[in-house]
């Protein structure tokens, strides 16, 4: 339903993917590389063009709705959770991702800039979108990414004096260090039965 092309129809070859067309054209105009899958447009840009791309997307492409900004930690080794599908081929890096969309229609794209792990610095886009300040603070908390030009890069979620960046793949889930999970509690060996009934019930 919902006007999705029916896979059994012979027309399928000719059905245009509007997202692919839009994403490719958008990337060409803004000078990036587009990857479109599942109607989700990703545009990879160089970090030196980060602020400029965001500004042009807002001014020239009408993507003026600042939706969110976050980071991604691409790591070969993970402390908790699943690893990437092919760890050997992965280039370890941070990605800063910002979603802009429009308040007129479905148009929207995710702009991504890759940062090397040992130099996780990128220019702040707070000058373009005031709302980005909190999102950049969050990414700073969670990944340790520095945003040059953010007026107030203080911790937003983490308490003062907190050590580490929780969303890094190298960061352990502390609750699990204390108590293994999942399901381990249920299958834990029962304590050995005492030889004689402990009798009485005195605590």
């Amino acid at each position: 339903m919902n006007d999705q092309p029916d896979a059994t129809e012979p027309l399928e070859e000719e059905v245009r993917d509007p997202y692919l067309e839009y994403g490719t054209a958008l990337a060409e105009r803004l000078g990036g590389r587009a990857v479109v899958e599942h109607d989700t447009i990703r545009i990879y840009v160089d970090r030196s063009n980060w602020v400029e791309t965001i500004r042009r997307a807002r001014d020239e492409e009408g993507l003026d709705f600042f939706s969110w900004l976050t980071g991604i930690d691409w790591s070969k080794d993970v402390e908790v959770g699943d690893t990437v599908a092919e760890p050997d081929e992965l280039e370890e890096r941070f990605e800063v991702m910002c979603r802009l969309s429009s308040v007129e229609g479905v148009a929207g794209a995710h702009f991504i800039a890759a940062l090397p792990k040992d130099d996780a610095v990128i220019d702040s886009i707070t000058g373009v979108f005031g709302g980005a300040e909190w999102h950049e603070r969050e990414a700073h908390d969670m990944f340790g990414i520095e945003f040059t030009g953010n007026p107030n890069l203080s911790p937003i979620y983490l308490p003062e004096g907190f050590i580490g960046h929780p969303l890094l793949k190298s960061y352990p889930l502390l609750a699990r260090e204390v108590k293994p999970w999942p399901g381990t509690v249920d299958v834990e060996d029962m304590p050995p039965e005492p030889e004689e009934p402990a009798g009485g019930g005195e605590a």
Binding site: S67, W68, T70, I72, D82, A85, H110
Partner: peptide
């Protein structure tokens, strides 16, 4: 919204939650 990155496993590799009230 949810930005979901799957690497083919049983768990998400990364899940970004776009929560409304934060913005």
């Amino acid at each position: 919204g949810y930005y979901l990155i799957s690497e083919g496993g049983q768990k998400p590799y990364r899940l970004k939650i776009r929560s409304t009230s934060f913005s």
